[in-house]
Write a protein that binds this DNA or RNA. Structure first.
Lengths: 207, 207
DNA sequence: GTCTATAAGCGGATAGAC
DNA sequence: GTCTATCCGCTTATAGAC
Protein backbone atom coordinates (compact mmCIF):
# COMPACT_ATOMS: atom_id res chain seq x y z
CA UNK A 1 0.00 0.00 0.00
CA UNK A 2 1.33 3.43 -0.97
CA UNK A 3 2.26 5.83 1.83
CA UNK A 4 -0.37 8.29 0.67
CA UNK A 5 -3.10 5.68 1.06
CA UNK A 6 -1.77 4.56 4.42
CA UNK A 7 -2.01 8.15 5.60
CA UNK A 8 -5.61 8.34 4.45
CA UNK A 9 -6.57 5.09 6.17
CA UNK A 10 -4.84 6.08 9.40
CA UNK A 11 -6.55 9.47 9.33
CA UNK A 12 -9.98 7.89 8.89
CA UNK A 13 -9.38 5.53 11.80
CA UNK A 14 -8.12 8.29 14.11
CA UNK A 15 -10.85 10.74 13.13
CA UNK A 16 -13.49 8.08 13.79
CA UNK A 17 -11.94 7.30 17.12
CA UNK A 18 -11.15 10.73 18.57
CA UNK A 19 -12.81 13.31 16.34
CA UNK A 20 -10.96 15.52 13.86
CA UNK A 21 -10.25 18.29 16.39
CA UNK A 22 -8.30 15.97 18.69
CA UNK A 23 -6.14 14.54 15.91
CA UNK A 24 -3.06 16.44 14.70
CA UNK A 25 -0.95 15.79 11.63
CA UNK A 26 1.72 14.53 14.06
CA UNK A 27 -0.67 11.93 15.45
CA UNK A 28 -1.48 10.72 11.98
CA UNK A 29 2.20 10.49 11.01
CA UNK A 30 2.96 8.57 14.21
CA UNK A 31 0.10 6.14 13.55
CA UNK A 32 1.43 5.47 10.06
CA UNK A 33 4.98 5.19 11.41
CA UNK A 34 6.45 7.98 9.30
CA UNK A 35 7.93 11.37 10.15
CA UNK A 36 5.82 14.56 10.27
CA UNK A 37 7.90 15.96 7.43
CA UNK A 38 7.05 13.00 5.24
CA UNK A 39 3.36 13.53 5.79
CA UNK A 40 3.77 17.09 4.55
CA UNK A 41 5.44 15.76 1.45
CA UNK A 42 2.20 13.95 0.57
CA UNK A 43 -0.34 16.48 1.80
CA UNK A 44 -0.27 20.24 2.14
CA UNK A 45 -2.18 20.16 5.44
CA UNK A 46 -4.97 18.52 7.38
CA UNK A 47 -7.65 20.01 5.15
CA UNK A 48 -5.94 18.42 2.18
CA UNK A 49 -6.20 15.02 3.85
CA UNK A 50 -9.87 15.66 4.50
CA UNK A 51 -10.33 16.41 0.83
CA UNK A 52 -8.67 13.14 -0.15
CA UNK A 53 -10.95 11.26 2.23
CA UNK A 54 -13.92 12.94 0.62
CA UNK A 55 -12.71 11.84 -2.80
CA UNK A 56 -12.65 8.29 -1.53
CA UNK A 57 -16.13 8.61 -0.04
CA UNK A 58 -17.47 9.86 -3.35
CA UNK A 59 -16.01 6.93 -5.24
CA UNK A 60 -17.04 4.27 -2.70
CA UNK A 61 -20.59 5.58 -2.32
CA UNK A 62 -21.15 5.81 -6.03
CA UNK A 63 -19.73 2.32 -6.62
CA UNK A 64 -21.84 0.72 -3.90
CA UNK A 65 -25.02 2.27 -5.23
CA UNK A 66 -24.28 1.13 -8.77
CA UNK A 67 -23.79 -2.41 -7.45
CA UNK A 68 -27.25 -2.39 -5.89
CA UNK A 69 -28.99 -0.92 -8.91
CA UNK A 70 -27.32 -3.50 -11.14
CA UNK A 71 -29.17 -6.22 -9.20
CA UNK A 72 -32.44 -4.66 -8.05
CA UNK A 73 -34.42 -2.19 -10.19
CA UNK A 74 -34.60 1.38 -8.84
CA UNK A 75 -37.97 1.97 -7.21
CA UNK A 76 -38.39 -1.61 -6.04
CA UNK A 77 -38.91 -2.17 -2.34
CA UNK A 78 -35.86 -4.42 -2.38
CA UNK A 79 -33.58 -1.72 -3.79
CA UNK A 80 -34.86 0.71 -1.19
CA UNK A 81 -34.02 -1.59 1.69
CA UNK A 82 -30.63 -2.57 0.35
CA UNK A 83 -29.77 1.07 -0.28
CA UNK A 84 -30.76 2.00 3.24
CA UNK A 85 -28.48 -0.63 4.74
CA UNK A 86 -25.67 0.32 2.37
CA UNK A 87 -25.91 3.93 3.53
CA UNK A 88 -25.78 2.86 7.17
CA UNK A 89 -22.61 0.87 6.59
CA UNK A 90 -21.16 3.76 4.64
CA UNK A 91 -21.98 6.22 7.40
CA UNK A 92 -20.38 3.91 9.92
CA UNK A 93 -17.17 3.57 7.93
CA UNK A 94 -16.87 7.35 7.72
CA UNK A 95 -18.67 8.08 10.95
CA UNK A 96 -16.46 11.01 11.96
CA UNK A 97 -17.64 12.76 8.84
CA UNK A 98 -21.33 12.47 9.62
CA UNK A 99 -20.75 13.35 13.23
CA UNK A 100 -18.97 16.58 12.45
CA UNK A 101 -20.49 17.30 9.08
CA UNK A 102 -22.16 20.62 9.83
CA UNK A 103 -19.11 21.87 11.68
CA UNK A 104 -16.75 20.70 8.94
CA UNK A 105 -18.58 22.39 6.10
CA UNK A 106 -18.76 25.53 8.21
CA UNK A 107 -14.97 25.63 8.37
CA UNK A 108 -14.21 24.45 4.86
CA UNK A 109 -16.28 26.31 2.26
CA UNK A 110 -14.86 24.24 -0.59
CA UNK A 111 -15.96 21.03 1.09
CA UNK A 112 -19.33 22.65 1.67
CA UNK A 113 -19.87 23.31 -2.03
CA UNK A 114 -18.86 19.79 -2.99
CA UNK A 115 -21.03 18.27 -0.34
CA UNK A 116 -24.12 20.26 -1.22
CA UNK A 117 -23.77 19.26 -4.87
CA UNK A 118 -23.57 15.57 -3.90
CA UNK A 119 -26.46 15.92 -1.45
CA UNK A 120 -28.73 17.41 -4.09
CA UNK A 121 -27.81 14.78 -6.67
CA UNK A 122 -28.63 12.01 -4.18
CA UNK A 123 -31.88 13.70 -3.22
CA UNK A 124 -32.87 13.58 -6.88
CA UNK A 125 -32.08 9.85 -6.93
CA UNK A 126 -34.37 9.29 -3.95
CA UNK A 127 -37.09 11.33 -5.56
CA UNK A 128 -36.70 9.34 -8.75
CA UNK A 129 -37.02 6.07 -6.83
CA UNK A 130 -40.22 7.28 -5.22
CA UNK A 131 -41.65 8.39 -8.55
CA UNK A 132 -40.82 4.96 -9.95
CA UNK A 133 -42.51 3.22 -7.06
CA UNK A 134 -45.63 5.27 -7.66
CA UNK A 135 -45.52 4.54 -11.40
CA UNK A 136 -45.15 0.84 -10.61
CA UNK A 137 -48.29 1.04 -8.50
CA UNK A 138 -46.49 0.14 -5.29
CA UNK A 139 -46.93 3.49 -3.55
CA UNK A 140 -50.22 5.35 -3.54
CA UNK A 141 -50.45 8.33 -5.88
CA UNK A 142 -49.26 11.64 -4.34
CA UNK A 143 -49.28 15.19 -5.59
CA UNK A 144 -46.08 17.18 -6.07
CA UNK A 145 -45.94 18.61 -2.53
CA UNK A 146 -46.48 15.25 -0.89
CA UNK A 147 -43.74 13.70 -2.98
CA UNK A 148 -41.27 16.39 -1.98
CA UNK A 149 -42.04 16.01 1.71
CA UNK A 150 -41.90 12.24 1.52
CA UNK A 151 -38.54 12.44 -0.27
CA UNK A 152 -37.16 14.71 2.45
CA UNK A 153 -38.43 12.37 5.13
CA UNK A 154 -36.91 9.23 3.67
CA UNK A 155 -33.61 10.90 2.93
CA UNK A 156 -33.41 12.43 6.40
CA UNK A 157 -34.05 9.05 8.03
CA UNK A 158 -31.35 7.39 5.96
CA UNK A 159 -28.82 10.16 6.64
CA UNK A 160 -29.35 10.53 10.36
CA UNK A 161 -30.31 7.13 11.70
CA UNK A 162 -26.74 6.43 12.77
CA UNK A 163 -26.46 9.82 14.44
CA UNK A 164 -29.76 9.21 16.15
CA UNK A 165 -28.48 5.96 17.64
CA UNK A 166 -25.30 7.64 18.83
CA UNK A 167 -26.90 10.65 20.50
CA UNK A 168 -29.35 8.32 22.24
CA UNK A 169 -26.48 6.30 23.66
CA UNK A 170 -27.42 3.17 21.73
CA UNK A 171 -24.72 0.95 20.39
CA UNK A 172 -24.38 0.62 16.66
CA UNK A 173 -24.92 -3.02 15.84
CA UNK A 174 -26.52 -5.00 13.06
CA UNK A 175 -29.63 -5.10 15.16
CA UNK A 176 -29.95 -1.36 15.77
CA UNK A 177 -29.17 -0.62 12.12
CA UNK A 178 -31.92 -3.01 11.11
CA UNK A 179 -34.27 -1.17 13.44
CA UNK A 180 -33.61 1.93 11.34
CA UNK A 181 -34.65 -0.05 8.36
CA UNK A 182 -37.84 -1.00 10.22
CA UNK A 183 -38.60 2.66 10.82
CA UNK A 184 -38.29 3.40 7.12
CA UNK A 185 -40.25 0.29 6.23
CA UNK A 186 -43.09 1.30 8.50
CA UNK A 187 -43.28 4.81 7.13
CA UNK A 188 -43.22 3.50 3.59
CA UNK A 189 -45.76 0.81 4.42
CA UNK A 190 -48.48 3.21 5.40
CA UNK A 191 -48.20 4.74 1.92
CA UNK A 192 -48.32 1.47 0.00
CA UNK A 193 -51.15 0.44 -2.32
CA UNK A 194 -53.30 -2.55 -1.45
CA UNK A 195 -51.57 -4.46 -4.20
CA UNK A 196 -48.13 -3.77 -2.73
CA UNK A 197 -49.31 -4.75 0.74
CA UNK A 198 -50.57 -7.99 -0.69
CA UNK A 199 -47.25 -8.61 -2.44
CA UNK A 200 -45.43 -7.91 0.79
CA UNK A 201 -47.61 -10.30 2.78
CA UNK A 202 -46.86 -13.03 0.24
CA UNK A 203 -43.12 -12.35 0.45
CA UNK A 204 -43.13 -12.42 4.23
CA UNK A 205 -45.18 -15.59 4.21
CA UNK A 206 -42.61 -17.41 2.09
CA UNK A 207 -39.44 -16.16 3.79
CA UNK B 1 -25.57 41.32 33.43
CA UNK B 2 -23.03 39.40 35.51
CA UNK B 3 -19.65 38.66 33.92
CA UNK B 4 -20.28 34.95 34.20
CA UNK B 5 -23.44 35.23 32.12
CA UNK B 6 -21.79 37.49 29.59
CA UNK B 7 -19.13 34.84 29.11
CA UNK B 8 -21.79 32.22 28.53
CA UNK B 9 -23.66 34.35 25.99
CA UNK B 10 -20.46 35.27 24.14
CA UNK B 11 -19.43 31.62 24.05
CA UNK B 12 -22.77 30.55 22.59
CA UNK B 13 -22.55 33.23 19.89
CA UNK B 14 -18.97 32.34 18.96
CA UNK B 15 -19.58 28.59 19.03
CA UNK B 16 -22.60 29.02 16.77
CA UNK B 17 -20.60 31.18 14.42
CA UNK B 18 -17.28 29.35 14.13
CA UNK B 19 -17.70 25.97 15.80
CA UNK B 20 -16.28 25.04 19.20
CA UNK B 21 -12.93 23.86 17.81
CA UNK B 22 -12.14 27.25 16.26
CA UNK B 23 -12.96 29.21 19.43
CA UNK B 24 -10.37 29.49 22.21
CA UNK B 25 -10.89 30.80 25.73
CA UNK B 26 -8.86 33.82 24.60
CA UNK B 27 -11.35 34.53 21.83
CA UNK B 28 -14.22 34.34 24.26
CA UNK B 29 -12.50 36.67 26.73
CA UNK B 30 -11.75 39.14 23.94
CA UNK B 31 -15.38 39.05 22.76
CA UNK B 32 -16.59 39.80 26.28
CA UNK B 33 -13.94 42.49 26.67
CA UNK B 34 -12.20 40.96 29.70
CA UNK B 35 -8.77 39.46 30.26
CA UNK B 36 -8.03 35.75 29.79
CA UNK B 37 -7.17 35.53 33.49
CA UNK B 38 -10.55 36.86 34.44
CA UNK B 39 -12.29 34.22 32.38
CA UNK B 40 -10.37 31.57 34.30
CA UNK B 41 -11.60 33.08 37.53
CA UNK B 42 -15.17 32.27 36.49
CA UNK B 43 -14.58 28.96 34.73
CA UNK B 44 -12.00 26.26 35.19
CA UNK B 45 -11.72 25.65 31.43
CA UNK B 46 -13.59 25.46 28.15
CA UNK B 47 -15.35 22.27 29.15
CA UNK B 48 -16.67 24.02 32.22
CA UNK B 49 -18.21 26.72 30.00
CA UNK B 50 -19.80 24.02 27.90
CA UNK B 51 -21.30 22.52 31.03
CA UNK B 52 -22.78 25.87 32.02
CA UNK B 53 -24.31 26.24 28.57
CA UNK B 54 -25.81 22.80 28.94
CA UNK B 55 -27.34 23.80 32.28
CA UNK B 56 -28.97 26.73 30.54
CA UNK B 57 -30.25 24.51 27.74
CA UNK B 58 -31.80 22.13 30.24
CA UNK B 59 -33.62 24.95 32.03
CA UNK B 60 -34.80 26.70 28.86
CA UNK B 61 -35.98 23.52 27.16
CA UNK B 62 -37.87 22.32 30.17
CA UNK B 63 -39.50 25.73 30.69
CA UNK B 64 -40.59 26.05 27.07
CA UNK B 65 -42.16 22.63 27.07
CA UNK B 66 -44.05 23.31 30.29
CA UNK B 67 -45.43 26.50 28.73
CA UNK B 68 -46.83 24.54 25.79
CA UNK B 69 -48.35 21.78 27.91
CA UNK B 70 -49.99 24.37 30.13
CA UNK B 71 -51.99 25.57 27.12
CA UNK B 72 -52.48 22.49 24.91
CA UNK B 73 -53.11 19.01 26.32
CA UNK B 74 -50.31 16.48 25.70
CA UNK B 75 -51.28 14.17 22.86
CA UNK B 76 -53.31 16.78 20.99
CA UNK B 77 -52.26 17.53 17.44
CA UNK B 78 -51.85 21.15 18.46
CA UNK B 79 -49.36 20.35 21.22
CA UNK B 80 -47.40 18.18 18.81
CA UNK B 81 -47.04 20.95 16.26
CA UNK B 82 -46.20 23.61 18.78
CA UNK B 83 -43.63 21.35 20.38
CA UNK B 84 -42.01 20.65 17.03
CA UNK B 85 -41.60 24.34 16.27
CA UNK B 86 -40.34 25.00 19.79
CA UNK B 87 -37.66 22.36 19.34
CA UNK B 88 -36.59 23.91 16.02
CA UNK B 89 -36.19 27.34 17.60
CA UNK B 90 -34.34 25.76 20.49
CA UNK B 91 -32.00 23.88 18.15
CA UNK B 92 -31.34 27.08 16.26
CA UNK B 93 -30.46 29.06 19.39
CA UNK B 94 -27.96 26.36 20.40
CA UNK B 95 -27.17 25.23 16.90
CA UNK B 96 -23.46 24.62 17.55
CA UNK B 97 -24.50 22.00 20.06
CA UNK B 98 -26.62 20.00 17.66
CA UNK B 99 -24.05 20.34 14.91
CA UNK B 100 -21.26 18.91 16.99
CA UNK B 101 -23.27 16.80 19.39
CA UNK B 102 -21.84 13.40 18.54
CA UNK B 103 -18.31 14.75 18.54
CA UNK B 104 -18.84 16.65 21.80
CA UNK B 105 -20.19 13.70 23.74
CA UNK B 106 -17.33 11.61 22.39
CA UNK B 107 -14.83 13.99 23.99
CA UNK B 108 -16.72 14.73 27.19
CA UNK B 109 -18.01 11.57 28.86
CA UNK B 110 -19.73 13.54 31.62
CA UNK B 111 -21.70 15.52 29.07
CA UNK B 112 -22.49 12.27 27.34
CA UNK B 113 -24.08 10.78 30.44
CA UNK B 114 -26.15 13.88 31.09
CA UNK B 115 -27.27 14.09 27.52
CA UNK B 116 -28.32 10.48 27.26
CA UNK B 117 -30.39 10.80 30.41
CA UNK B 118 -32.19 13.84 28.99
CA UNK B 119 -32.61 12.18 25.61
CA UNK B 120 -34.29 9.13 27.13
CA UNK B 121 -36.56 11.23 29.32
CA UNK B 122 -37.71 13.20 26.28
CA UNK B 123 -38.19 10.04 24.27
CA UNK B 124 -40.55 8.83 26.99
CA UNK B 125 -42.48 12.10 26.72
CA UNK B 126 -42.89 11.60 22.98
CA UNK B 127 -43.99 8.03 23.50
CA UNK B 128 -46.47 9.17 26.10
CA UNK B 129 -47.91 11.75 23.70
CA UNK B 130 -48.37 9.11 21.05
CA UNK B 131 -50.05 6.75 23.50
CA UNK B 132 -52.38 9.59 24.49
CA UNK B 133 -53.24 10.32 20.88
CA UNK B 134 -54.12 6.69 20.35
CA UNK B 135 -56.22 6.62 23.52
CA UNK B 136 -58.01 9.76 22.34
CA UNK B 137 -58.86 7.99 19.11
CA UNK B 138 -56.84 10.38 16.95
CA UNK B 139 -54.20 7.93 15.84
CA UNK B 140 -55.03 4.42 14.68
CA UNK B 141 -54.30 1.63 17.15
CA UNK B 142 -50.78 0.20 16.95
CA UNK B 143 -49.04 -2.67 18.67
CA UNK B 144 -46.01 -2.20 20.90
CA UNK B 145 -43.40 -2.53 18.15
CA UNK B 146 -45.14 -0.07 15.87
CA UNK B 147 -45.41 2.46 18.67
CA UNK B 148 -41.69 2.23 19.38
CA UNK B 149 -40.73 2.68 15.76
CA UNK B 150 -43.14 5.55 15.30
CA UNK B 151 -41.75 7.23 18.42
CA UNK B 152 -38.21 6.92 17.10
CA UNK B 153 -39.26 8.32 13.76
CA UNK B 154 -41.01 11.38 15.16
CA UNK B 155 -38.24 12.12 17.60
CA UNK B 156 -35.56 11.73 14.95
CA UNK B 157 -37.36 14.13 12.64
CA UNK B 158 -37.70 16.72 15.38
CA UNK B 159 -34.06 16.41 16.42
CA UNK B 160 -32.44 16.46 13.02
CA UNK B 161 -34.60 18.64 10.79
CA UNK B 162 -32.35 21.64 11.37
CA UNK B 163 -29.25 19.58 10.63
CA UNK B 164 -30.90 18.23 7.53
CA UNK B 165 -31.50 21.75 6.24
CA UNK B 166 -27.92 22.75 6.95
CA UNK B 167 -26.21 19.79 5.32
CA UNK B 168 -28.43 20.27 2.27
CA UNK B 169 -27.30 23.87 1.96
CA UNK B 170 -30.76 25.26 2.66
CA UNK B 171 -31.13 28.42 4.67
CA UNK B 172 -32.84 28.18 8.01
CA UNK B 173 -35.88 30.40 7.82
CA UNK B 174 -39.41 30.36 9.16
CA UNK B 175 -40.43 28.82 5.88
CA UNK B 176 -37.95 25.95 5.89
CA UNK B 177 -38.66 25.24 9.56
CA UNK B 178 -42.35 25.06 8.74
CA UNK B 179 -41.56 22.61 5.97
CA UNK B 180 -40.12 20.33 8.66
CA UNK B 181 -43.41 20.60 10.43
CA UNK B 182 -45.15 19.61 7.19
CA UNK B 183 -42.99 16.50 6.97
CA UNK B 184 -44.00 15.48 10.48
CA UNK B 185 -47.63 16.37 9.81
CA UNK B 186 -47.70 14.21 6.70
CA UNK B 187 -46.19 11.21 8.44
CA UNK B 188 -48.63 11.60 11.33
CA UNK B 189 -51.52 12.13 8.95
CA UNK B 190 -51.22 8.76 7.30
CA UNK B 191 -51.66 7.17 10.72
CA UNK B 192 -54.71 9.18 11.76
CA UNK B 193 -58.16 7.71 12.30
CA UNK B 194 -61.02 8.71 10.01
CA UNK B 195 -62.45 10.74 12.85
CA UNK B 196 -59.21 12.72 13.26
CA UNK B 197 -58.98 13.30 9.52
CA UNK B 198 -62.49 14.65 9.61
CA UNK B 199 -61.65 16.90 12.54
CA UNK B 200 -58.60 18.17 10.69
CA UNK B 201 -60.57 18.91 7.54
CA UNK B 202 -63.02 20.95 9.60
CA UNK B 203 -60.17 22.88 11.25
CA UNK B 204 -58.50 23.62 7.94
CA UNK B 205 -61.81 24.65 6.44
CA UNK B 206 -62.32 27.28 9.13
CA UNK B 207 -58.78 28.68 9.27
C1' DG C 1 10.44 9.58 -0.67
C1' DT C 2 11.86 9.95 3.72
C1' DC C 3 14.29 11.75 7.49
C1' DT C 4 15.87 15.30 11.29
C1' DA C 5 15.73 19.68 13.10
C1' DT C 6 13.62 23.58 14.07
C1' DA C 7 11.08 28.14 13.65
C1' DA C 8 6.98 30.53 14.77
C1' DG C 9 2.76 30.84 16.86
C1' DC C 10 -1.22 29.62 19.49
C1' DG C 11 -3.97 27.81 23.20
C1' DG C 12 -4.53 26.44 27.99
C1' DA C 13 -3.66 27.60 32.35
C1' DT C 14 -1.58 29.81 36.65
C1' DA C 15 0.69 33.32 39.87
C1' DG C 16 0.48 37.37 41.96
C1' DA C 17 -0.49 42.44 42.00
C1' DC C 18 -4.30 45.64 42.46
C1' DG D 1 -13.33 40.50 40.45
C1' DT D 2 -10.15 41.88 37.38
C1' DC D 3 -5.72 42.67 35.40
C1' DT D 4 -0.79 41.74 33.66
C1' DA D 5 2.73 38.70 32.92
C1' DT D 6 4.24 34.48 31.89
C1' DC D 7 5.12 29.34 31.28
C1' DC D 8 4.51 25.10 29.11
C1' DG D 9 3.25 22.19 25.60
C1' DC D 10 1.55 21.29 21.30
C1' DT D 11 0.72 22.02 16.34
C1' DT D 12 1.67 23.57 11.91
C1' DA D 13 4.79 24.01 8.49
C1' DT D 14 9.34 24.45 6.24
C1' DA D 15 14.45 23.80 5.19
C1' DG D 16 17.82 20.92 4.04
C1' DA D 17 20.41 16.42 4.44
C1' DC D 18 20.23 11.62 2.82
Amino acid sequence: MKTRDRIIEAAIALFNDKGTAAVSTNHIAAAVGISPGNLYYHFRNKEDILGAIYDQMDAVGFGDYQAIIAESPAGSLEAMERTFLMIQRFNWRYRFFKRELTALILQHPQLRERHIRTHRALLKLVRHSIDSSIDLGLIRPMDETERQLFTDEIWLLALFWLNYLEVGGEEVTDETLRRGNEVVRQTVRCRLTDRALHLLATMEGTS
